[in-house]
Amino acid sequence: MHRIDIQTNTRLFQSLFHYLLDDVVLNQTRLNKIPVQAPRDIYLLLSRFLPFYNSADRMESFLKHCPAFPNAFFVGGPSDIIVTELTDQLLKLKVEPVLLHYLSQIKILQGMELRMTTSTRLKSCLYSFTCPGCPVYPTRAVRHAAWHALDLLFPVGQYPRHLISLFFRLLYPWYWPSSCWNFAISCMKAIFCSLLRLIFSSWKKVIKPKQP
């Protein structure tokens, strides 16, 4: 059902999501009344949609109510489980507005202690969205959002990453015209905004009444 919302960028099942989150997963009394496997399946399902339904404020409670998983020794703790599910979800997203929303909400993962394998997998996933072409063919907006998310979650090494990315872009001359055009547009926008700020600040000084 939630896949319908993902594919159409709607929130038809948001009430169902919040019911499962607030009245089932975060309600220990109800959890004790259902089979052992059910809380695990619900937890994995909700982990994929926390950013989509803007539930970042529930993350701390959600982590504390993580059920016991039999393969926790191999998978990791609650943070690793959530990040693994979100990484899988990101790789499956095909609708650009939904993907942009996920990337903008990925900040909820900031500060989590992750295993090296989980961290590397998330980093690789985000990096795949920064590269034009295969395998995901991201748009320019998605690439910029992915770079922002990558730099936010993994600030160490962000400058070498950008330099390496620039080097590989230079290996593909057919990307040069679009890159130069976008760079020129960005520069013109920056200059235009600076001129507007200068004009408005000068105008305020002119119309500001002089104190006697």
Results as ranks from 00 to 15, higher is better:
residue 2 H to M: 05
residue 5 D to M: 05
residue 6 I to M: 14
residue 7 Q to M: 13
residue 8 T to G: 06
residue 8 T to R: 14
residue 9 N to C: 09
residue 10 T to R: 11
residue 10 T to Q: 06
residue 11 R to D: 06
residue 12 L to F: 08
residue 12 L to Y: 06
residue 14 Q to T: 05
residue 14 Q to F: 01
residue 15 S to M: 08
residue 17 F to W: 02
residue 18 H to R: 12
residue 19 Y to L: 06
residue 19 Y to M: 00
residue 20 L to I: 07
residue 20 L to A: 00
residue 21 L to K: 00
residue 23 D to T: 05
residue 25 V to N: 01
residue 32 N to F: 06
residue 33 K to T: 06
residue 33 K to I: 00
residue 35 P to Y: 01
residue 43 Y to F: 14
residue 47 S to F: 04
residue 49 F to N: 04
residue 51 P to A: 12
residue 52 F to T: 10
residue 54 N to R: 14
residue 58 R to N: 03
residue 63 L to V: 14
residue 63 L to W: 08
residue 64 K to S: 11
residue 65 H to Y: 10
residue 66 C to P: 10
residue 67 P to K: 14
residue 68 A to Q: 09
residue 68 A to I: 14
residue 69 F to A: 14
residue 69 F to N: 12
residue 71 N to L: 07
residue 72 A to M: 10
residue 74 F to L: 13
residue 74 F to E: 13
residue 76 G to K: 05
residue 78 P to L: 05
residue 80 D to A: 11
residue 81 I to N: 03
residue 83 V to F: 04
residue 84 T to P: 00
residue 86 L to K: 05
residue 87 T to V: 08
residue 92 K to H: 11
residue 94 K to E: 09
residue 95 V to E: 10
residue 97 P to C: 14
residue 98 V to M: 08
residue 98 V to G: 00
residue 102 Y to C: 02
residue 105 Q to M: 07
residue 106 I to A: 02
residue 108 I to W: 00
residue 110 Q to G: 01
residue 111 G to D: 01
residue 112 M to W: 04
residue 112 M to A: 03
residue 112 M to L: 13
residue 113 E to S: 10
residue 114 L to C: 09
residue 115 R to I: 03
residue 116 M to P: 00
residue 117 T to Y: 15
residue 121 R to E: 04
residue 122 L to Y: 02
residue 124 S to A: 13
residue 125 C to V: 08
residue 128 S to T: 13
residue 129 F to A: 01
residue 130 T to V: 09
residue 130 T to F: 00
residue 131 C to M: 12
residue 138 P to H: 04
residue 140 R to C: 08
residue 146 A to F: 06
residue 147 W to R: 10
residue 147 W to V: 12
residue 148 H to S: 05
residue 149 A to W: 15
residue 149 A to M: 12
residue 152 L to H: 05
residue 152 L to I: 03
residue 152 L to K: 10
residue 154 F to R: 12
residue 155 P to T: 09
residue 159 Y to G: 02
residue 160 P to F: 03
residue 160 P to H: 11
residue 164 I to E: 11
residue 165 S to Q: 07
residue 171 L to K: 15
residue 175 Y to F: 10
residue 176 W to L: 05
residue 181 W to S: 15
residue 182 N to I: 13
residue 183 F to Y: 09
residue 184 A to I: 15
residue 185 I to R: 12
residue 185 I to A: 04
residue 187 C to T: 08
residue 188 M to Q: 08
residue 188 M to W: 13
residue 189 K to I: 01
residue 189 K to G: 03
residue 190 A to N: 11
residue 190 A to Q: 10
residue 191 I to A: 07
residue 191 I to D: 01
residue 196 L to V: 15
residue 196 L to N: 08
residue 197 R to N: 07
residue 197 R to I: 15
residue 197 R to V: 15
residue 198 L to A: 13
residue 198 L to G: 12
residue 200 F to W: 15
residue 201 S to T: 15
residue 201 S to M: 09
residue 203 W to P: 01
residue 204 K to H: 07
residue 206 V to H: 07
residue 210 K to R: 15
residue 211 Q to R: 13
residue 212 P to R: 14
